[in-house]
Structures are given as C-alpha cells and as structure tokens.
C-alpha cells in the first residue's frame, strides 16, 4: 500500500530524513520508534504533505500513485489520515461541521453520495460512544478548550468517521493518562482491518501494550536502522536506543 524508498527530507532548512525506506502492506500495523529528534514526526508530516517540509530525494508510492505530488486535501481524499501530535484549535468552527465537510469531500471524491445531516449525526453519535465522548462535543469548536486527552480522542474519532486506508498516528499516546490511553487504543484496534494499514509513531513502548504491532522499526538519524517484530519494542523499552545505534554503526 505504502512504499517509501530512499526518502530524504528537510524540516525547514534542517536535513532530517536521510534515506528512509519503509514498506507497509494492507492490513498491517507498523510501529516506528526512535529517540527524540530522530525524524519520526517529520516522516508523519511529510506523508501528510505539510508545508515547510521539503523532500530532497527518494519516492513515496501510495496505492501505486506518487503521494508526494498530491495536495494535502487530495491525500486525505485518497485515504491518508494523520492523527496530529498537537491537534490545532480552530475557534468558532464546529467539530461536527469540520467532520461532515471532510467526510462528504472524501465521499464525493470516491464517487459516493453525500451524507445528509441526519445520517451523519447517527453515524457520529455511534462513533462518539465508542470513544466515550460527551454529547457536548457536538456543539464545541474544533479542539477549542479541549484537554490534551480530549484532543487525542477527537483525532481517533475523526479517523473512525473518515475511515482511511492508511492511518498515521503521530505520538498519539503522548499526554494521555492510562484510562484515556485504553480508550484511544480500543478506538484504533476497532479500526484494524485487512484493507487498512496503520503506522504508529511513538517514543514509548507503552502504547504497543494496547495496540499490538506486526512490525517495529527503529528510526535514528533519519533512517530506519533496525526492524523486527513486537519483541523489538520490548527490548528497546528495557535497553534503550543506544545499543541499536551502536549495532547499526558497527
């Protein structure tokens, strides 16, 4: 589904990604781990098409298309979803409105009919139950005045409504207490399916106790320096990152 080859990218003027390779197939869950500054978030932003990040080399192919050529909204419409590490507050713009506009843009893109307000509300109420979100959420501005946990839940809610093919979760576990983490993880797990790929970007192994990955990659210096299964994550938790770096350097 997603094929990244020899990706080089700048964040601002700083070289952050240095020849990153990654293959993600449908139905798979990948965890990308790494110390601070290794390029995890840059990878997520580059894949979502954020301005300020410049690809200087390599290719990213998504469902056979050159992902890098697409605008951010077209990526979203093609089924790429980024759960932001720091979801932005947009005062005055209603949560439901944003989601409905986004969903209908995606449905239209897929050649499906647009949802009316009633259908949509039924859908979102059901999803909100799953995320244990309060009804008052419907009337609030996008992330406006949300706590850190609420913002993250809102990201997963959006994901469950938009039903992407490729979900990128950028440090979704950061700032969550254990209960919120469980809810978020349950939300993500409910979206696991043979047609969908999920890429988790995380600093800690903690999240992986709840969302079991098929593959674990260590990112360091802008490249993947080691890959393995979920046992690699446990080893990282125990031994830290340095040994992997040394091993890679050797």
């Amino acid at each position: 589904m997603l094929s990244i080859k020899n990706l080089h990218a700048l964040a601002g003027e700083k070289q952050v990604l240095n020849g990153l390779d990654l293959e993600v197939g449908a139905g798979e869950v990948h965890a990308i781990m790494g110390p601070n500054g290794s390029g995890k978030s840059t990878l997520a932003q580059v894949l979502a098409g954020r301005e300020g990040y410049t690809v200087t080399g390599g290719t990213v192919t998504y469902k056979g298309k050159n992902l890098l050529e697409l605008s951010p909204e077209d990526r979203a419409r093609e089924g790429v979803f980024l759960a932001f590490q720091y979801p932005v507050e947009i005062p005055g713009v209603n949560n439901v409105y944003l989601l409905k506009a986004g969903l209908n843009a995606i449905r239209k893109h897929r050649g499906e009919s647009e949802m009316d307000a009633f259908e949509f509300l039924t859908l979102i109420r059901e999803k909100m139950k799953l995320m244990q979100m309060d009804e008052s959420f419907l009337n609030r501005g996008v992330n406006e005045g949300f706590s850190g946990g609420e913002k993250k839940r809102n990201e997963i809610l959006q994901m469950s409504v938009l039903e992407p093919s490729l979900a990128l979760l950028d440090e979704t576990d950061s700032g969550l207490d254990i209960d919120a983490l469980r809810v978020v993880a349950a939300g993500v797990n409910s979206l696991r399916s043979p047609e969908r790929a999920i890429v988790l970007v995380t600093h800690y192994q903690r999240l992986l106790d709840y969302i079991e990955p098929d593959h674990v990659h260590v990112l360091s210096g802008g490249r993947i320096i080691k890959s393995g299964d979920k046992s690699l994550a446990l080893e990282l938790e125990k031994r830290g990152y340095d040994w992997v770096k040394q091993e890679a350097a050797a």
Binding site: G49, E51, A76, L82, V88, G92, Y97, G102, G141
Partner: peptide, 28 residues
C-alpha cells in the same frame, strides 16, 4: 493560522472552503 489551514486540508477540505470556514468561525 497555517496550522489551522493545514488541519482542514488534511481532513479533505479544499483551501477555499477551509478559509471560508475559518473566517466564518472567526466571526461566529
């Protein structure tokens, strides 16, 4: 905000609609 704009774009909304949304939100 560039980040507000990008957030809307990344949810599949066109730039023009995103700007109108944000401006209307500003005036709400």
């Amino acid at each position: 905000g560039d980040d507000q704009l990008f957030y809307c774009l990344s949810r599949g909304i066109s730039e023009e609609d995103a700007v109108n949304m944000i401006v209307n939100g500003f005036c709400k």
